[in-house]
Design a protein around this nucleic acid. Structure first.
Lengths: 297, 297
DNA sequence: TGGAAATAATATCTAATAAGTATTAAAAAG
DNA sequence: CTTTTTAATACTTATTAGATATTATTTCCA
């Protein structure tokens, strides 16, 4: 079996063209050097040197193999170097999952500052709902999730990065449009467009419970996975909705957002990652998020 | 000291993500495998795996190093293969870059004699200007360049193979055609067709400077990358030019070549190759060129 | 829960093999 | 023709890769 030792020895002998001197340079005796070179020649299947009893010369094949061997060591050095760089977090990649609504709030700011401060790390982004993110985090398919709490899984670590108030989204033709704040009970006869409960059970239940307190059960005419879709449905007059305030950033025409008259529920956004997962890229991302004030985004 | 053994073991463990199974595949016991991997990590200076007591995962650095390690073995195989080929006398190929004008001077003779004396080496030829050849030599895309000095790069070796006088190229309808030699100042009102300076700054500057000495700055109406094109433009009456004498071999009708009355500048042609590059094919080519007398070509 | 199974690490021992020593054979130098 | 140089061979020693036995956790399942 060929080992790097063989190549190191070969290169030295090829440079010295003298077994004795090469052995000196390698801090070893001459006979084992001869043996190792012979071993290499047998493994390769061709002669590296023309030897007489007194002199040593490279064969043509030996010349070619010398160049290739040197290249090999260069490449090894480079492999080690790039490994070290990655281990120091000076390059590498970070795979991130995010909920669609975060694209209108925290995500842009996070990406911008990571890009500018850690440009050597490649980012890969996947839009997906919270429950799917949890699964992908477990399987190691993503390194970081931007999602809505709660997350029960104890192997995942969680940090809340944003608490945003919920607002009412109305079609611009709606009669309540002139009010500065909407009382919930004025919506008791309205059709509601909401996200499916599994997407964010906590926020969903908050909304339902608020309506209950206002004395009615909301009439849900349509569910949609994506916040964008919900907003589009509202714009199309399908109904009203209650959504996180950051959706305002979408600038969708045909929709007007109004604060609630009642004490507002808050929708939280958190980041989640595997507890044991300590890739340098991730560490840097987490450290950077600490420094950001995302609540205004 | 890192050995290929370490890399073989690492690759297997990385593929199995399981020390026990990896050890099986390697026909060895699990403990020494753990030890060798640990040894490798110490030598590299970074972790390759995240290990818990029960599971193994590649670190980011490990992922990078895995790819690099595989490349390394591929390159080793290739090194062995090309060594074997050479040893069987099926020695590979020689890739040559050449300036277009050499096709009318040194190149044909070089190729003919190499072909006849070293038929087992395949030749690959690329026509390209000097500056491009230098780049390709550096990148190892060509093994030998036939080009115009100067070449500054210290990693390249140079040998001049031809010094040829420059002559004036005139359209055959030109009034000066009856003169046996052309005095430069008689061209002060002429339109010139020349190559772009970067192609051969030394020759270009020589021409300009000669004109200056004759008391005028040449009026350059057209530049062309290829000497053939320049000659065609002259034949078409676009202007006159000053070109290496070997262009006569082109036998282009409609053009007449006349020596200069002034002391002639010489255009040199040289061969260049990587200093450390000593493939047998190249060596033979270089040796052969020594034996040729190209100055008459 | 509690115990069995799985799994990587550690400690210790054995065997393979790399390296060393002594010597030989041949060639070159004087 | 002797001395010196040099690589190869034969044999011994030292190193270290690998094997065995065991341990410490963790996971899985009853």
């Amino acid at each position: 079996m060929i080992e790097l030792r063989h190549l190191r020895y070969f290169i030295t002998v090829a440079e010295e063209l003298h077994f004795g001197r090469a052995a000196d340079r390698l801090h070893m005796a001459q006979p084992p050097l001869s043996q190792q070179i012979k071993q290499l020649e047998i493994a390769l299947g061709f002669q590296l040197f023309y030897r007489t009893k007194r002199s040593v010369q490279l064969t043509e094949a030996g010349q070619v193999f010398l160049l290739e061997s040197r290249k090999l060591f260069k490449q090894l050095d480079q492999a080690i170097e790039s490994g070290r760089q990655v281990s120091r977090g000076e390059s590498g990649q970070l795979v991130i999952g995010f909920i669609s609504s975060s694209a209108y709030s925290v995500l842009p700011e996070m990406l911008r500052s990571f890009r500018s401060q850690v440009p050597e790390v490649r980012l890969e982004l996947h839009e997906m709902p919270t429950n799917e993110q949890i699964e992908w985090l477990r399987q190691g398919k993503i390194d970081l999730g931007i999602l809505r709490p709660p997350v029960e899984d104890p192997s995942l670590q969680l940090s809340t990065i944003l608490r945003e108030p919920m607002v009412v989204a109305l079609p611009e033709s709606h009669p309540l449009i002139d009010q500065s704040a909407i009382a919930l009970d004025s919506l008791s006869r309205e059709s509601f467009v909401l996200f499916p409960r599994p997407l964010s059970p906590r926020v969903y239940d908050q909304i339902i419970s608020l309506c209950q307190q206002a004395g009615f059960s909301p009439h849900i005419v349509q569910e949609a996975m994506q916040m964008q879709t919900i907003i589009s449905l509202v714009a199309g007059g399908m109904g009203v909705s209650i959504v996180p305030i950051s959706l305002q950033n979408m600038q969708r025409t045909g929709v007007v957002y109004k604060p609630l008259a009642e004490p507002t529920p808050y929708a939280e956004v958190a980041i989640a990652w595997r507890q044991q997962d300590t890739t340098p890229s991730l560490q840097r991302f987490l450290a950077l998020i600490q420094t950001l004030n995302l609540s205004e985004a």
